[in-house]
Amino acid sequence: MYHYLEEELEQLKMKIIKMGSLVEEQIANSFKALFEGNNELALTVMRRDDEVDKYDIKIDKHCQRIFALTQPVAFDLRLIMSALMINNDLERMGDIAVNISEQAEPLNDYTDLLRKMRLEDMTVKIKKIVKSSIDCFVNSDSELAKSVILMDDEIDKLDRELFYRITDEMKSNPDLIVPCAHLLALTSNIERLADHATNIAEDVIFLIDAKIIKHSKDPNNLKLKE
């Protein structure tokens, strides 16, 4: 029986890893499409969201099958619960990549504005936090997961700075109100990616350390090992 369960869990983990790498690629391509004004690439991202959705369904079904057939407990139970929650976050991240790609076309002619607002500072960090969140699941690394959660604070700070830069630009340059409004919607989407990455990191801590830390305000929960 346990060989069957081990095999099922390994396959489930592989599905999450594959979905994670697909979502990571979707996010990177949506940023590329945005900065390069590449509408073709933006369309590719939108089309490939179907693949992400298929993984979402596959993982849900797989978890359901393992629950029904093996009645998992302890670490195995936490792995399946984490897989379900991470799947949900990855699917939402895939949707956000689509939203970002949809913003690429209206901002095609404003690549200078994107540079001026230093949006790339944020997207670089977002790519890093997304990659780290998936890595901490792949490597069962709860220390990396804690650092992901701490990284989110930096991103929130960047998001606030970006908000003020954009609204200042709107005040001083009313001709740019429309693209700036698109930009505000865009940054809000981008910031949400970090929130989902943080959720994944919290799920990894639940998986490895058996601690529920979501909504926790206790900084000790996140203290990194020296």
């Binding site: 369960l5 093996t70 407990v73 302890a74 195995d76 139970l77 936490r78 058996a210």
Partner: peptide, 19 residues
């Protein structure tokens, strides 16, 4: 607690059917 967060690896392995 035992079936969600067992302290000992042997317990984890036994209750999950690994031996």
């Amino acid at each position: 607690k035992m079936f969600t967060r067992p302290e000992n690896e042997k317990t984890q392995n036994y209750i999950s059917g690994r031996f």
